[in-house]
Amino acid sequence: MKGQYEIGYVLNPESTEEDVKKVADSILGIIKKAKGEIENVDEWGRRPLAYRIQNHNEGVFTFIKTDFDGSVVANIERRLRLSEKVMRFLVLRLDDKLKKANKLTKKWQKIDKNAKKTKTFPQKEKKDEEELKIKNEVKDE
């Protein structure tokens, strides 16, 4: 059973760039062995934490989006748990919720169709969009 997964983990702020690469490579290696596909690797870098974790105020964030076999998840979680530099981690499955979410698009399409039939709604939406645009412009400045 292939599925879309997202792996996120927070590293110790004392870890160097080599350590970050090591952890990432070890996980990517497991995925490649299981013939999974890597969609993208999102590296946020150093970021302040909302609260203290293990007496640290900062963390190094990385998020990996992948398509792979679900049986490997336990392997990856074990690897993350055992590595000392990793403070927190989260592995999520994404695709099973997309089916439910796709029902919403039908709802929204209906709303859009009804809005087109009645002339009053689109005008209101346009006004809102214009207001938002003006607000965004002000923020950008």
């Binding site: 934490l49 909302a50 609260y51 964030f61 403070m87 927190r88 989260l90 999520l92 919403l104």
Partner: peptide, 22 residues
């Protein structure tokens, strides 16, 4: 209600990862 349920889960996940405060 659909989005509120998702919101609560998303916020709790963000808290676990140290992105939001408890």
């Amino acid at each position: 209600s659909y989005h509120q349920k998702q919101l609560t889960k998303a916020i709790k996940r963000a808290r676990h990862m140290g992105l939001l405060k408890f």
